[in-house]
């Protein structure tokens, strides 16, 4: 563990990623205090104005403050990311445990289901599901969960398969432990580390998918501020007011980048193979 911490500390880019994520979380929490204006209050007199002292990042086609909307938008994106990754990981981990621990027919069924899901490009599948369920943030989240759980199930299964071969699992059985006890007390704590990495790296695609679906009009409904929807709204005014698309785009990019940097850093720190390769270099 101490090894992990020192390893992680040396990784500057991962630290930057962590810092940016922390900043985003703070922004999301304190959006009401930080925002200079009400994010959904239209002031038609100030339509499409460029960044100025009054509106640091300008206003949109309804005269709403872009900065305020971006700050509030962070709440939606992060909340969607956390909830979707949390639920998808819980579902995937549970099914992965069943698959890896019991094997046999259950394993076949779950893994073929995973293969079937992976055969589709995930964003199309999510789009199809969200389209069927109808627009709305809740439906978008369900759609992404349905697509995302597979990666956790696969990783968890692989991890369980290797951990369950350990002698201490046999030793616990020899003491009379039940399956449930062996899994929760002995296998899970030794098998969960890769899930942390996958979940961190999984935040970016989830946020991206949620903004994409909102961009396509399936997610958050107006007037709630959301980055993907802001991009779509600004699309019509790209020539006259490029700031409407630039700033939400940059916000999305920074968020995705931060999660990916953190995820890569965690992977390097937790994966012994990546570590030795680095030391050899």
């Amino acid at each position: 563990m101490a090894d992990f911490v020192s390893q992680f500390r040396e990784n500057r880019t991962a630290l930057v990623g962590a810092a940016v994520i922390l900043l985003l979380v703070l922004v999301a929490i304190f959006a009401p205090q930080l925002a200079p204006h009400n994010p959904i209050k239209a002031s038609l007199g100030d339509r499409l104005s460029a960044p100025s002292e009054k509106y640091p990042l300008g206003t949109d086609h309804l005269g709403r403050c872009v900065l305020s909307r971006l700050l509030y938008g962070a709440r939606i994106s992060l909340a969607v990311g956390v909830v979707v990754v949390g639920v998808a990981a819980a579902v995937g981990v549970a099914l992965g445990i069943i698959s890896g621990f019991y094997g046999g027919v259950l394993d076949e069924i779950i893994m073929r289901l995973v293969d079937a899901m992976l055969a589709f490009p995930s964003i199309f599948l999510a789009l199809a599901i969200a389209g069927t369920l109808g627009p709305g943030l809740g439906n978008v989240m369900i759609a992404i969960i349905v697509v995302e759980w597979t990666r956790y199930a696969r990783v968890m299964r692989g991890s369980i398969l290797s951990v369950k071969e350990n002698y201490y699992v046999e030793a616990a059985r020899a003491l009379g432990a039940s399956d449930f006890y062996v899994v929760t007390q002995h296998i899970l704590p030794n098998a969960i580390a890769p899930i942390i990495v996958v979940a961190t790296l999984g935040m970016a695609p989830v946020i991206l998918a949620a903004t994409s679906l909102s961009f396509l009009g399936l997610g958050v409904q107006p007037p709630t501020p959301e980055w993907g929807m802001m991009l779509n709204d600004g699309r019509l005014f790209m020539r006259r007011a490029p700031h409407l698309t630039t700033f939400p785009g940059v916000a999305i990019m920074i968020t995705i980048l931060a999660f990916n940097l953190l995820g890569d850093g965690l992977r390097d720190a937790l994966d012994p193979r990546a570590r030795t390769e680095k030391e050899l270099r």
Partner: peptide
């Protein structure tokens, strides 16, 4: 009760 071989790997490293 069974005392397994390989004590180094028969004890759970995280407990």
């Amino acid at each position: 009760a069974m005392i397994l071989q390989n004590p180094a790997t028969s004890l759970n490293p995280v407990l």
